[in-house]
Simulated scan of single mutants.
Amino acid sequence: MARVSAKQDKDHLLVHFGEAVRARRLASALSQEALADFAEIDRSHMGKIERGERNVTFLNIVRIAKAMDCKPSDLLIDAGL
C-alpha cells in the first residue's frame, strides 16, 4: 500500500485540521513553540501541521489536544471533520 501524503489531500482535510489547531492555539494565547513543547513535538513539525503540510498521526493529535486541554474530537469538530 502506498504511503499517504499531504499532496494527496484533495479535500484539504489537513489544512482544515491545521487551521483548527492554530485557531485554538491563538485563542489560548500560546506560541507555536510553547504548544510544540507542551505536546512534545518538534516546533518545525508543529508549523507543518498547522499549515496542512503533514499527515498528522493519531498520537500527535492526542498530544496536541492534551497540550491544549481539550479532547482530540474537539480539534476534529473545530476542523469540520
Rank of each mutant, 00 (worst) to 15 (best):
S44D: 06
T57H: 03
K66Q: 15
L30M: 15
L81N: 07
A67L: 09
N55G: 12
D69H: 13
L59A: 15
L81P: 03
E33Q: 06
H12R: 13
I49M: 07
I41M: 02
G80D: 11
V62C: 13
A36I: 02
V15W: 06
I64M: 07
G80Y: 11
D74E: 11
G47W: 05
S5Y: 05
R43P: 08
A2P: 15
D78M: 11
A23M: 10
D9R: 09
V4E: 11
M46V: 03
A79Q: 06
L81M: 11
H12W: 09
I64A: 07
A65F: 09
I49H: 03
A6V: 01
S28I: 00
G52C: 08
A65C: 09
K7P: 01
V56T: 15
T57Q: 09
A27W: 00
F38N: 11
L75A: 04
F58C: 12
V56G: 01
R25H: 00
A67D: 09
A34P: 00
R51Y: 05
L14G: 13
L35Q: 08
S73Y: 05
A67I: 06
D42N: 08
S31C: 02
S31Y: 01
R24E: 00
L13D: 09
A39C: 06
R3K: 15
P72E: 11
V15C: 04
A23Y: 06
G18N: 07
L30G: 00
F38A: 14
S5F: 03
D78I: 05
D37M: 12
M46R: 05
P72C: 12
A36D: 00
V56D: 02
S44Y: 04
H16I: 06
H12A: 13
D69F: 05
A2S: 14
C70T: 14
D37I: 11
I77Y: 14
A39K: 03
M1F: 13
L14N: 13
R63I: 09
E53D: 11
F58I: 10
R54I: 08
D74P: 06
D9K: 08
V15Y: 09
L76M: 14
V21K: 00
